[in-house]
Design a binder for these strands. Structure first.
Lengths: 299, 299
DNA sequence: ATAATAGTGTCTTTCAGACAGTATAGT
DNA sequence: ACTATACTGTCTGAAAGACACTATTAT
């Protein structure tokens, strides 16, 4: 095969030697990391269980563009590392954790995403057990902080057209911690015309969130909410041992809705293994501790 | 915000004027298109219905690297077009169709994907109604041809480890048309260790398929098989009017398995509208024609 | 009449949702 | 005793799977 010659009479070796990649303008490529974890809030009283919140790691931009705003951790993909390697490197830099759940989500390629130059960004989602984190990534040199995330649907609008419909949804994205509150509104337009379906995502409003990152966050949360229902990824957010109530809280805080205990336990029963240990000093009946049961999910 | 200055004392305007993107080595970015359609085979006799086959558009490479092999249609993303625009442009160039279903799948970023230079490629899947295609894209200047695709699981291997398991699957990918037969074997390794799940995709063998495109095709078929179960994307492969048997055949050829008629009809009943027309001259009982019913799917 | 497809009815099993009930440590 | 949580049983209706049966055209 490599002895074949092309129209210019070059074999592969000669062709590659003559190839000049710099002839064309190339975009820059970055990875953006969505690093989620779930942490406990303060206990309200000695009897109540602590509430859980979903958190996302963000970084305060120290330089233009979007200086002072909060952005997803990430950075340029080096010429000698794969996309996955770049994502792992960023993850390690930010959280100092190696062996962790990570999944590619989507690549964002609008021309004017970034004022500096043409930048295409591939987003990755990562789920971290907060107990393995400790203080790291909050006292980093760069201003990395965990934000409580919430993403709520607050407006829905359907228009029926001749050959289909247009369906608009507005999501309110709110991130907060002790010092900062940032937010955005993301509009998702699904249009069906004949057989053709299109989905558009647009930032309506963005307060303190850099670039188009509000869109990326909303997309990731949507994916997380979906995927939690038919995979076992939620266990990446749990510590080694956990109670079923804690597991349920994690599902509830991600889905942003309450679940019925009996039904939840039925649904996840195959994914956990009972241990002989129990919680202690809870101010009420102790709870059995479980661990993850790695197994094939219907494959 | 744009009046803020950074550590070098520059405001945003000054910063952007001084920004030199060419300082860093940048990868090239391409889009690869997976254009699927479903066509009829020849009727076996006057009574039998024609069988349906899933087809994928491929292009014979006329230059290095991989000269003579078959590759997915695609090309470089221009500096002034978005990823989606680049995909739409390629689609238009290859099929001459504009308004069509298209979805981003995944970005492939291994360092040595291409011998020329570092190339990151984002793959898009598109589904086309074959009746709207006619002869186009088969007599194009470049060697574009439709291949019958099949992707079959033919080996499965599970190893249980201390803290989880390793699950390997081998898929045989076969593409063929009158003149050519190309194929590949793709290995998918899912490893679960403790809570950490990893999925790797590797090309074991590739005969006549350029670059890492066998991997990309296998991924797309997997996604298509999944998505057909909970969305209405299959209708993009149908003409305006169709029989329920035709629709079922499309599902069957994608899923590569037979479905029960009564159950299938129950499942898709909400997505179709009855018309008053019937098929004719079929050699057996005529069939009612249906059309797509655009509607919200549980949203 | 026959071959081949068109189309429908219904039984069973599985699963999701809802709710009601009992159990138990810590103060 | 009381509070807050732990844990289980069961009813319901919806959906998925399996199968059997009837209907209708061109030749």
């Amino acid at each position: 095969m490599d002895k074949m010659i092309n129209k210019q009479g070059l074999n592969e070796e000669q062709f590659l030697a003559a190839y000049d990649a710099s002839k064309y303008d190339r975009p820059s490529v970055t990875v953006d990391m969505l690093i989620f974890t779930v942490t406990n809030e303060e206990k309200k009283n000695y009897r109540k269980l602590p509430e859980k919140v979903l958190r996302l790691l963000m970084i305060k931009r120290g330089d233009h563009p979007c200086i002072g705003q909060w952005a997803l951790p990430g950075g340029f993909v080096e010429i000698d590392e794969s996309l996955d390697e770049a994502a792992l490197r960023e993850l390690k830099e930010e959280t100092n954790i190696d062996n962790i759940y990570m999944e590619q989500l989507y690549s964002w390629g609008d021309v004017d995403r970034d004022l500096r130059t043409r930048i295409i960004s591939t987003s990755y989602m990562s789920l971290v057990d907060s107990s393995s984190l400790d203080v790291k990534a909050s006292d980093d040199a760069d201003d990395a902080k965990w934000f409580t995330v919430s993403c709520k649907l607050y407006q829905e609008h359907k228009t029926v057209t001749e050959k289909g419909y247009i369906f608009e949804r507005l999501y309110k994205l709110s991130l907060s911690n002790q010092e900062d509150e940032i937010s955005a509104v993301v509009k998702i337009v699904k249009s069906v015309e004949g057989k053709i379906t299109k989905i558009q995502r647009e930032i309506i409003e963005s307060n303190g969130i850099a670039f188009d990152h509000a869109k990326i966050i909303q997309y990731a949360i949507e994916r997380l909410r979906n995927k939690i229902g038919y995979t076992d990824i939620a266990f990446n957010l749990m510590s080694e041992l956990f109670t079923l109530t804690e597991l349920q809280q994690v599902y509830e805080v991600i889905l942003d809705k309450e679940l019925l205990k009996a039904n939840f336990r039925r649904k996840i029963s195959d994914m956990v293994i009972e241990t002989n240990e129990y919680t202690k000093d809870a101010g009420h009946r102790p709870s059995k501790l479980f661990k993850f049961n790695p197994q094939l999910l219907g494959e």
